[in-house]
Amino acid sequence: MESLSTSSVSGTLVTLSAVLMLLAAFACLGSKLFNRYVAYYGFQSVVLSFAAAVIAEHYGSGELWALAALTLLIKGIGIPLSTRHLLLQRLDLRRDVAVSTGLSTSLIIGALLTAFAFLVIGPQDLPAGAVASSAVPLSTALVLLGGLAMVVRRHTVAQLIGWLITENGVFLGAITLAATFPFIVEAGIFLDLVAAVLMMVAYVSGITRSLAEATASELRELRG
């Protein structure tokens, strides 16, 4: 089995996708309007499914093809549409005002986190030619940026998207480093995620019937 090195066509496409995903994560961090925030997440997931398809093609793995299709359907189309519907139609929220730092500050912190990811996982330390080496620190950066979005945003749905960005990063890292990962594990994670999103959406929409805005600071007051 040919390895997924940086200079192969597949490795190049995976790296390209990783860069686009990083840019989409930054776009998420920097957007104030909810519909754009969700759209950028959807774009990121579509790119992720493309990367998964490239790796599936490279290794000829039917399981990865299935995962790529699932990613496209659920994370690229399903989740963005449903959260968009929830936020814009049902809650009538257009702008995310519940942000704890300025958008430019969060972008600068994001750039620092990316630098940190490259510092910790220097692609030059990875075995040369074995993996698409720049995709690995990029996926780590995505994990950190998703975490940052969860810290910076206070609205629950916005935090949920931050968590999904982190999940995208984990998924990208997994398929880049260990594409031959047992299908059942990945699919299990995936199902977990879908269940969590469904629960979250149901929960948030239920709770917002009584609360005008579902921000985490208000939810915290519900403790006994």
């Binding site: 920097g30 692609p123 720049s134 620190p137």
Partner: peptide
């Protein structure tokens, strides 16, 4: 300023990710 700031950020990310050049 935000547009130019975005260009600055993108270029900064480019410099940061430049470790890969040794591949």
């Amino acid at each position: 300023a935000e547009f130019v700031g975005a260009a600055f950020l993108v270029a900064l990310l480019g410099v940061v990710t430049s470790y890969v050049v040794s591949v």
